[in-house]
Structures are given as structure tokens and as C-alpha cells.
Simulated assay, not measured.
Amino acid sequence: MTGSILIGILTFCLASTVHYFALTRLHGVITARMKPGYSAVLAGICGAGAAHLLEAMLYALSFAVMDATGLGGFKGGDSDGFMDIFYFSLVNYTSLGLGDIYPTGHSRFMAGLESLNGFLLISCSASLVFVLMHKNFSQPGNS
């Protein structure tokens, strides 16, 4: 149990750190090199989306470690190994919770952390996109 809590907290902190640096860098590059407009907003959306995929992958790797060490596992799916774990991670990160694959054992704790972290980080990305869109609409001549 202690191992799964430690893995969960470390993954939560790592994903949050990755997201912070990704969005900070993304905002800096967009504001320094791009004019406000559609392309800046699209770059923000795509960059934030790439960061979210990386963060879901970090959780998937942690789930795989827990599965390999016997701390937890999964039921359901097509038994495609890591792809099923990554699929579950993406669904869980976005808080969709489809239920076709579900965690067992101590992986359930990690799933809860991932949903919380995903909700928080997606909210941060939404804030970035809002800022980029606001800059577009606050420019003279834009409505």
C-alpha cells in the first residue's frame, strides 16, 4: 500500500511539473513569436494537448509499473497490454470514466489521483487558451 501511494504521489507531482513547464514555455514562445489570432490559439490548443498526452503517458507507465510489481492491475479490455493501460489512462485523465477497463487493487488509488490531476491540469490549459483568445479579441479591429 505504501508503495502505491508513493508511486501515485510522485506521478501526480511529475505530471504537474511537466504541465507547468510545458505551459510556461508554450505561452512564452507563442507571445514572443506569434501575433494574436487563430494561429496563436491553435498553437496553444495543440501544445496543451501534446502536454496532456505526455502526462497521461506518465500515468500509464506508472500503472504498468504497479501492474508488473503486483500492486494493482486491470480487468476488461482486449488484453492489448500497454495500449489498454494507455487507453485507460487517457479516459481516466479526462474524467470520462467509460468503465470498459477498470483498475483493481491499489491501482484504484492511482486512478483517483489521475482523475483529480487531469481535471486540474485541463483547467490550467483552458486558462491558457482563454488568455490567448482574449488577446485576439482585445486587439483593435477585432470583434
Rank of each mutant, 00 (worst) to 15 (best):
residue 29 V to L: 13
residue 125 S to F: 04
residue 93 Y to W: 08
residue 121 L to N: 09
residue 48 A to M: 06
residue 33 R to C: 09
residue 93 Y to R: 00
residue 54 L to M: 13
residue 39 S to F: 13
residue 114 E to F: 01
residue 122 I to G: 01
residue 127 S to V: 11
residue 5 I to N: 07
residue 24 T to E: 15
residue 30 I to F: 03
residue 131 V to F: 10
residue 7 I to K: 04
residue 135 K to E: 14
residue 131 V to D: 14
residue 86 F to N: 06
residue 43 A to W: 12
residue 122 I to K: 00
residue 21 F to H: 13
residue 75 K to M: 09
residue 88 F to R: 01
residue 60 A to G: 10
residue 81 G to V: 08
residue 126 A to P: 01
residue 121 L to H: 00
residue 84 D to W: 03
residue 59 Y to N: 04
residue 12 F to Q: 00
residue 91 V to K: 01
residue 12 F to C: 03
residue 62 S to K: 08
residue 20 Y to F: 15
residue 134 H to L: 13
residue 30 I to C: 02
residue 93 Y to D: 00
residue 86 F to W: 15
residue 74 F to L: 05
residue 25 R to K: 11
residue 16 S to C: 09
residue 92 N to I: 03
residue 47 G to R: 11
residue 95 S to R: 05
residue 58 L to G: 08
residue 131 V to W: 07
residue 3 G to I: 13
residue 63 F to E: 09
residue 97 G to D: 06
residue 93 Y to G: 00
residue 136 N to H: 14
residue 78 D to C: 05
residue 70 G to M: 11
residue 38 Y to A: 11
residue 4 S to G: 09
residue 104 T to L: 05
residue 82 F to T: 03
residue 14 L to W: 07
residue 142 N to R: 15
residue 98 L to E: 07
residue 45 I to A: 15
residue 31 T to S: 12
residue 108 R to I: 12
residue 5 I to S: 07
residue 56 A to W: 02
residue 39 S to Q: 12
residue 22 A to G: 05
residue 16 S to E: 05
residue 62 S to Q: 07
residue 1 M to V: 11
residue 121 L to Q: 10
residue 82 F to M: 04
residue 100 D to C: 11
residue 118 G to E: 01
residue 87 Y to N: 06
residue 16 S to H: 06
residue 105 G to T: 08
residue 80 D to K: 15
residue 83 M to D: 11
residue 82 F to E: 05
residue 21 F to K: 09
residue 139 Q to D: 12
residue 121 L to D: 01
residue 126 A to R: 03
residue 135 K to V: 06
residue 132 L to H: 08
residue 9 I to Y: 09
residue 63 F to G: 04
residue 105 G to I: 06
residue 91 V to H: 00
residue 61 L to W: 10
residue 97 G to W: 01
residue 59 Y to E: 06
residue 111 A to C: 11
residue 88 F to Q: 00
residue 23 L to G: 06
residue 130 F to N: 12
residue 41 V to S: 07
residue 129 V to C: 06
residue 65 V to I: 13
residue 108 R to H: 05
residue 60 A to Y: 04
residue 30 I to G: 00
residue 100 D to P: 00
residue 21 F to A: 10
residue 127 S to P: 03
residue 125 S to C: 13
residue 118 G to L: 03
residue 139 Q to S: 13
